[in-house]
Design a protein around this nucleic acid. Structure first.
Length: 302
DNA sequence: GCGGCAGCCACGCTTACTTCA
DNA sequence: GATGAAGTAAGCGTGGCTGCC
């Protein structure tokens, strides 16, 4: 079963495949490097408390797969043979066992829902009563969504990771599901995306850590070598050249002795006669290539 | 204007169930 | 066939936001 779902679902679990869902990002990268990775949408709440991810074109509800035959037996059930026809009929009949979790909606909560008169909540309450009657054991049967249903939900999720009530109802109607099911699916989908993103971020940080550790090791070794040279001037003098680099005593910048005065007998005044001294690019004085090594060594997000 | 309350929504955590190796 | 891991639908508690009184 996972084959299809992995293709359909996992997929947009990637970094940016979802056009509207932007998981929490790491702030390691320069802003310019990730312009397409804005803030998490789940925090971009509109004035009404709802997500504004639907604002800007996605607000309208439009059929994604209008020709879906909601009456067709779910392929999953067909292949797995796990979901009986009785169960499907039960679902269609409004007595789905999906919500058979008998339950335990807390008094305050149930009270709230009862007073709210919310369509699907009322519907849910209704289902609960029915299921209570049908399976008083409190068993919670699960019904897999069909491939078509999952596909449509997935498509919808790619467009907007959160739904406004209208969209939710439209989707539910289109897929012959209860609004609550659509809502739950989106919640779980967001959770999966976030989890996947967390894993990706974790991997990324791990690589960053490894790279920086390696870079740190390299730099420490270099520091030790330089200190050793400083502590043994004779050796330092004998080396021809000890290194291709030396430090300018006046400006304390590292330079190449081959192109400037001798390190053993620095002549600052002469050295500074170079008209272009002050215009030297940093690169020409750097003890090592000025490319930000640590940045180079940090793995780039794909 | 401020505080309390209710309603709504989304999230995190968890459970129960399904599927697969 | 049994079993554990992974995936997923759903339940529950909670916090934030908004509107009303």
């Amino acid at each position: 079963m996972m084959m299809m779902e992995k293709e359909d679902l996992a997929l947009s679990l990637g970094l940016n495949t979802s056009t509207n869902y932007f998981p929490p990002r790491l702030s390691l990268m320069a802003p310019s490097s990730s312009p397409s990775w804005p803030m998490p949408s789940h925090r971009l709440l509109g004035p009404s408390g709802g997500s504004i991810s639907n604002v800007g074109g996605a607000g309208e509800t439009r059929p994604l797969l209008t020709m879906i035959d909601v009456n067709r037996a779910p392929s999953v059930a067909a292949t797995a043979g796990k979901v009986s026809e009785e169960e499907e009929e039960e679902e269609e009949g409004g007595a789905s066992s999906l919500n058979s979790a008998v339950s335990s909606v807390g008094g305050k909560r149930a009270e709230r829902h009862a007073l709210a008169g919310d369509d699907h909540d009322a519907e849910r309450a209704c289902f609960r009563v029915v299921s209570d009657e049908e399976d008083g054991e409190g068993s919670r049967k699960k019904l897999r969504l069909s491939k078509d249903q999952s596909a449509v939900l997935e498509e919808s999720f790619k467009k907007h990771s959160t739904l406004n009530p209208k969209q939710k109802l439209a989707l539910a109607e289109q897929l012959n599901l209860r609004p609550r099911q659509v809502e739950v699916w989106f919640q779980n989908r967001r959770a999966r995306t976030k989890l996947k993103q967390t894993e990706v971020d974790c991997e990324f940080l791990k690589k960053c850590c490894e790279s920086l550790t390696e870079e740190n090791r390299r730099l420490q070794k270099e520091v030790q070598e330089l200190r050793a040279l400083k502590l043994s001037p004779q050796l330092y003098m004998q080396m021809t050249p000890p290194t291709t680099l030396t430090m300018c005593p006046s400006c304390e910048r590292v330079s190449n002795p081959a192109t400037t005065s001798s390190p053993a007998n620095p002549q600052p005044s002469e050295h500074h006669q170079y008209s272009n001294h002050n215009r030297q690019t940093a690169a020409s004085w750097a003890p090592f290539p000025l490319e930000p090594l640590f940045l180079d060594s940090i793995p780039q997000r794909s």
